[in-house]
């Protein structure tokens, strides 16, 4: 069994995957093959430490390449596949894992080799608990964006080859509508004001926007605000199925602080909570809190900070 493979249809994430791949290479002494669908990413992946880059051509729908990615790995009898943990990536990874009859760890935070197995740190119960998952080789792991930084260029660049692949033709993609506000990357914000179901109307989000304005913060939210109410784009919701952020300041207004949400922001430096319910779990997760009606508190806070 030989070979560490990485795949992500997301250019930035593909590069980040090389960091854990290089660490695993140091323990396993196996070459790294990066599989990509993008000709333009290939060169860069080869520079950053991939010994070989395979560009698969023959389609644009990443999920449709799952079978082709599987055959790359099974041909080489690869031992590890790291996949960028986007939703598309998770689909591909689980498909390949099933074909390999391999174990797979979802959203791994740290990876190492121990006793000839892949040991990954991950969360359970949406973040209530953390555990180490020991996966026998061949092993598959998905890794979310920004879990690792991209590595520095390697001393020697790897080789690039292009192969045509047969994409899944059973599924036809008829329409792709980009969503969300391009350009705003809330994971890069140093301050966030997060809103929850305590807001009664979309217009009321103005109170949070005003606070965000004086703090120079971005708006974030809970799943319900984005997925059910559609008041904010889904890129702005934080949690196990949303974004993970680590800002300097996270102000949580009118959100209860359920673990599924908090797992996405609990590494923030300072967490501030504003909630009417003294027993809301958010207060346990907060550094500072105000028990009170945010409809009264937010304008006062905005005014106080403006001074």
């Amino acid at each position: 069994m030989a070979g560490i493979f990485i795949f992500s249809e997301d250019s930035a994430l593909a590069k980040q995957l090389l960091t854990p791949a290089l660490e695993l290479k140091a323990s396993l002494a196996q070459p790294i093959t990066a599989i990509t669908l993008s000709e333009s990413d290939a060169e860069e992946l080869a520079k950053l430490g991939a010994d070989k880059v395979v560009v698969l051509t023959g389609g644009t729908w990443a999920e449709g390449f799952a079978e082709a990615i599987y055959s790359q790995i099974s041909k080489a009898e690869g031992s590890i596949l790291l996949v960028g943990g986007t939703l598309r990536g998770k689909h591909v990874a689980a498909y390949v894992a099933a074909k390999l009859n391999a174990g797979m760890t979802t959203d791994a935070k740290a990876l190492k080799i121990a006793n000839g197995k892949l040991l990954a740190t991950r969360v359970l119960y949406a973040g209530l608990a953390v555990c180490e998952e020991e996966v026998a080789l061949p092993a598959v792991a998905t890794i979310r964006a920004r879990t690792f930084l991209a590595p520095a260029p390697a001393p020697a660049a790897g080789v690039v080859e292009t192969q045509s692949a047969e994409a899944d033709s059973r599924i036809t993609i008829s329409e792709v509508i980009p969503t969300g506000d391009k350009g705003v990357d809330i994971t890069a914000a140093t301050k966030l004001v997060a809103v929850g179901r305590g807001f009664r109307r979309k217009e009321d989000l103005k109170l949070a926007e005003d606070l965000a304005g004086v703090l120079k913060a971005e708006l974030a939210c809970t799943r319900g605000i984005a997925e059910d109410e559609h008041w904010l784009p889904i890129e702005r919701y934080i949690g196990i199925s949303g974004q993970t952020v680590k800002p300097e300041l996270y102000v949580a207004a009118g959100l209860s602080g359920q673990v599924q949400h908090m797992v996405g922001c609990r590494e923030s430096k300072v967490i501030v909570a504003i909630n009417t319910d003294e027993r809301a779990p958010i207060f346990e997760a907060a550094d500072y809190g105000i028990v009170g009606d945010m409809y009264e508190v937010l304008p006062l806070l905005t005014a106080a900070l403006r001074k």
Binding site: G103, A129, C131, E134, A139, E278, A286, E296
Partner: peptide, 26 residues
């Protein structure tokens, strides 16, 4: 199972937990 869970531990946050709850919002 190919993936085995080990050393499951609850996640605890170290936070200051300072809560202001006077009747005056100001």
């Amino acid at each position: 199972p190919k993936a085995l869970r080990q050393s499951v531990k609850g996640f605890v946050m170290q936070r200051r937990n300072v809560v202001y709850k006077e009747s005056s919002a100001a």
